[in-house]
């Protein structure tokens, strides 16, 4: 067990350290996320639309598409200098490699979200009533499920000829239930005086996360090596 978490820690530390020095994944996520938010702000005037109509779509479109670019960048970096072969030729537990990568992606994504979210808060005038623990639980579960799938598919995408194009093509159909739960859950949080139905979306997210964390843990080795 100690060896397992040692590998998780080594992969996480390498990815975070390399990103701290390069900052290319972080820059990609933040720049694309901010641009998406700005486009939505100009398309839907916040003063003329109810928050529950605009914020969920803006937020999750920004996070998901920025995340795709970040995942692609992360996988491309591992292909550069063939770092993937370094992982494959090591005897390291493939499940540990998966969790190491997943946690690294989680760090990149959460930092990116921490920069993008304040902009959404300011432009859409969100207050303490909206930024509740329920909202952050939704954000955390949505991001975790997204990356549980994305970490596996980013490796698959890099092995195809189309690379950058392949990841969203593979990822978005699988993520449909997650995307639905995230948007609908956020709509409920943004709607005044009601939390009806929120629990069901959270349950869906928890189920999705558990299923795809287990699937990723079991399949990552096959995906990496084939």
């Amino acid at each position: 067990m100690k060896a397992f978490w040692g590998i998780v820690g080594a992969v996480l530390a390498r990815d975070v350290r390399a990103e701290w020095r390069r900052k290319d994944i972080f820059t990609t996520i933040v720049m694309f996320g901010l641009l998406t938010v700005v486009v939505f702000v100009f398309s839907f005037d916040p003063s003329r639309h109810a928050r529950e109509e605009v914020v969920p779509g803006t937020l999750w479109t920004a996070f998901f598409f920025a995340g795709i670019l970040g995942l692609n960048r992360s996988a491309a970096r591992d292909s550069q200098d063939d770092l993937v072969s370094g992982l494959i030729t090591s005897p390291a537990d493939r499940g540990a490699l998966y969790f190491g990568k997943l946690l690294a992606h989680l760090v990149f994504m959460l930092v990116g979200e921490a920069v993008i979210l304040p902009l959404v808060v300011v432009w859409f005038d969100l207050g303490a009533r909206h930024l509740t623990p329920s909202f952050f639980a939704l954000l955390a579960l949505g991001t975790l499920g997204y990356l549980a799938v994305g970490t596996v598919f980013a490796v698959v995408g890099q092995k195809t000829r189309l690379r950058e194009v392949m990841l969203p093509v593979l990822l978005l159909p699988v993520l449909t239930p997650l995307l639905l739960a995230c948007v609908e859950g956020t709509t409920i949080v943004m709607t005044p005086d009601t939390m009806e139905g929120f629990g069901a979306w959270i349950k869906l997210l928890v189920g999705f996360d558990v299923i795809f964390l287990v699937t990723g843990f079991l399949l990552y080795g096959f995906v990496l090596e084939d």
């Binding site: 390498r14 390399a18 390069r22 200098d81 063939d82 770092l83 072969s85 370094g86 030729t89």
Partner: peptide, 14 residues
């Protein structure tokens, strides 16, 4: 087994 390939399998940023 130790493997040395065309690529170095090293991370340039480290």
């Amino acid at each position: 087994m130790g493997y040395v390939a065309h690529h170095t399998l090293l991370d340039d940023a480290l």
